[in-house]
Structure formats: structure tokens, C-alpha cells
Simulated scan of single mutants.
Amino acid sequence: MQGKLRWGDFVICAVVLALAGLITLPFLFQPSDSLTCEIKQGDTVVKTIRLADGYQDTITLTAGDITNVIEVDGKSVRFASSNCPDQVCVHTGTLTRAGQMAVCLPTRVVVRLIGEDTTVDAVAR
């Protein structure tokens, strides 16, 4: 065997590269996931926001002595601050994918992301 490449080697490389390109092509032109943020307090929908790059908003909700500040930044949402005792809502972090949610139980505020993404993280039986 010699260490030289033959024309057949180039043909095989070209075919492999063409197949790799064809496999990745559908993923390149796939529409981006559209996300909607739904903010509820109790049973009432306070605000519904269609998330998009460049969109920013700050929502302040109050229930009794407790105030929640929710920040929307592009395609992510988070509880920026809350003066509730346990701070679970703030420690939940930033929501970026469909199906994620953050809840402040003392104020009954629920922030959840709704989208077309139907992937499943895990299945329990």
C-alpha cells in the first residue's frame, strides 16, 4: 500500500461531505421556537407576552405586603426580586424553554413559558 490518495478517495470524501450537508440542512431552516410568557396571579391572567429578541419589560405585582418584580429580557423571564420569606421564586432562576415555570406561593403568582417545543426531559412510570 502506498501513502498516496487516489481519485476514488476524493469521491468517497465528497460523498460523505455531501451526505453530512444534506442531514444538517433541515435543522438550519427550522423555524425558531415561539415562546409565550403567561403571568397569572391566583386565577387571573395578569399578562401574556410573546417573547422575542430585544424585548424587555418589568412587571411588578403586589399581594398584601409582598411585592414581586418579574423581568423579561428577550426570550427569557425571571423573578428579579421578591420580599417573600422563602425566596424560592427568585432562586428558581431564568426561564428559557417551553414548559418551565416559576411560582411564588405567598402571592400565588405563576410565571410559565408556553411554546411549540414538545420535547420531554424525562418519563416516570
Rank of each mutant, 00 (worst) to 15 (best):
T48F: 07
L113G: 12
D65Y: 02
H91N: 13
E38W: 01
A18Q: 00
R125A: 09
D57C: 06
D117T: 07
V111I: 14
I49H: 05
G42W: 01
P31G: 11
L17I: 01
L35E: 15
P85I: 03
Q87G: 01
L17Y: 00
A124W: 06
R97D: 13
L28G: 14
T60M: 08
P31V: 04
V11H: 07
K40Y: 04
R97G: 13
R112S: 15
L22P: 03
T58M: 10
I66C: 02
I12P: 00
D43W: 06
V110I: 13
Q41Y: 02
S82D: 08
H91S: 12
H91Q: 10
V69R: 05
R112L: 15
C104Q: 02
V90F: 06
L28W: 13
I59C: 04
T62C: 02
T94K: 15
K47H: 05
G42M: 06
G64I: 01
C13V: 06
G74K: 02
D43G: 11
L95G: 14
C13R: 00
P85H: 09
G8E: 13
D9K: 03
V72F: 03
Q30G: 07
V11T: 13
L28S: 14
T67H: 03
T118E: 11
Q30N: 13
P85Y: 11
T67G: 03
D73L: 03
S81A: 15
T44Y: 10
K47T: 01
Q41P: 02
V103I: 08
S32D: 15
V77H: 09
C104D: 02
G8S: 15
D9H: 10
V111D: 10
A80S: 12
D65W: 03
F27S: 09
V88E: 11
Q56H: 11
A20E: 01
V15N: 00
R6A: 14
D73E: 10
M1D: 12
A102E: 13
L105W: 02
V111A: 14
Q100F: 09
Y55C: 10
F79E: 06
G21R: 00
V88R: 07
I59R: 00
K4G: 09
V16T: 00
A122I: 08
T96L: 15
P106L: 05
L22W: 08
L22Q: 10
D121F: 11
P26L: 09
C89L: 02
V120H: 01
C104T: 00
L28K: 09
E116Y: 05
I114T: 12
P31Q: 10
I23M: 04
K40N: 05
P85N: 12
R6V: 10
L19P: 01
Q87A: 14
V72Y: 04
V69Y: 03
S76L: 11
Q100S: 15
Q2D: 12
L35Y: 09
L51A: 14
M1E: 14
T94M: 15
T118L: 13
G42V: 07
K40I: 01
A18D: 00
G42Y: 03
T58W: 05
V16C: 00
